[in-house]
């Protein structure tokens, strides 16, 4: 039993010397992964850019006046 305890102590000491495992994800892989995430691609999926925003505003502006009459 004493020998077993000694071995256990030694193993624990040696394994403690190993560096803490870290998650080292390649930046490109991570970006590929994130691209599958819905929450990261909201504006991309909606294709919402300045041109579309301006078109939306112009379409709304075209109704100005009509709304007041309604």
């Amino acid at each position: 039993m004493t020998a077993d305890r000694e071995i256990t102590r030694r193993h624990a000491g040696l394994l403690d010397r190993l560096k803490r495992p870290e998650l080292d994800v390649d930046e490109t892989d991570d970006e590929d992964l994130r691209h599958l995430e819905l929450r990261r691609v909201v504006l991309e999926v909606a294709e919402l850019d300045h041109a579309q925003e301006i078109a939306l505003v112009r379409a709304a502006v075209a109704r100005f006046g009509k709304a007041g009459q309604a």
């Binding site: 579309q52 939306l56 379409a59 109704r63």
Partner: peptide, 10 residues
């Protein structure tokens, strides 16, 4: 933008 779009769509 959806709010603006709704306005444009009457």
């Amino acid at each position: 933008c959806a709010l603006v779009r709704a306005f444009a769509e009457e």
